[in-house]
Design a binder for these strands. Structure first.
Lengths: 150, 150
DNA sequence: ACAAATCCCGAGTGATTTAATAAGATATCC
DNA sequence: GGATATCTTATTAAATCACTCGGGATTTGT
């Protein structure tokens, strides 16, 4: 029940892009450095995000990436689905093309996995990049307070 | 974000045992046959369940396994934790021994994974083997109705 | 006493997935 | 034209998965 690095790195990278909204395009190199990730590996991940329209690329010198939509239109679930595939704790309850199973209609364990899938999807689809930006701002102000009291 | 076969087979096996409550001990062989699983592989899984007290074993001829507690005291989450380890979509928010991270206090992505972890745990801990037995009885009666109308 | 059934335990293994790395082609700015 | 980037494909070392195998210990029925 682990997310792979694809999902984790992808969300980090997208959040990094969200933090640089409105500025010049952000190069993979700078994202990789800030987030402590492999640049070449990120390249593969962001390729999928681009094809899905979640980021736009600007090629050439001074190029880089920008978000493909406003941060409030990008849900964490969207990112995860692109990078990890459809949400599915087990294949027979996959969000798309569930592995067919002749006893699916009357399988009890299946309904358990469906509930798990729904609760994961619900959480991931309830959080947008904008929510994360707000949370980050909140954490930052908390930290200032904390530092003040030391 | 997939469960391995350990968790899936384990829940199937435990449910099978729940369906045979009060009867003679159930052999691995019969569970494996009914559920379509490898007997030797199942042996490894049930070994962990026994050490955790979720099943009791009776050795020798006519031996087998029985549930270690009443079905309403065994949550799916208990089974999953034994077979798949602590619930943790990413290591830094593991239920036990979360991988330390110097910026954990102020990490925004971390709070996302915490929410995912909590929602998974909540679902898995809200379902007991008894619930599954009840659901199975319900499905069975639905099926009778359905067959009637064909 | 013995054979059959059954649990118990550890080692080995082929296939797949993961997480990169490498190398080179293409595009753009200055 | 050179520096800076993105794009694309191929390769790979390590880990994990899902078993398989072999043998030992324990209990039951004959």
């Amino acid at each position: 029940m682990k997310l792979s690095t694809k999902g984790r790195y992808g969300v980090k990278a997208m959040f990094d892009l969200a933090q640089h909204m409105g500025e010049a395009p952000v190069s993979l190199k700078s994202i990789a450095e800030r987030q402590g990730l492999s640049e070449h590996y990120l390249e593969q991940l962001i390729s999928g995000l681009r094809k899905a329209g979640l980021v736009k690329s600007i090629r050439g010198a001074q190029g880089g990436y920008v978000l493909g939509k406003d941060p409030d239109k990008i849900r964490i679930g969207d990112i995860i689905r692109v990078l990890e595939g459809p949400i599915a704790p087990v294949d027979c309850v996959s969000e798309e093309d569930p592995e067919s199973c002749h006893k699916a209609e009357f399988c009890v364990t299946r309904t358990v996995w469906e509930k798990v899938r729904n609760s994961i999807a619900e959480v991931l689809d309830s959080i947008t990049l904008e929510d994360m930006l707000n949370d980050a701002a909140k954490l930052e102000s908390d930290r200032s307070l904390y530092m003040y009291y030391i």
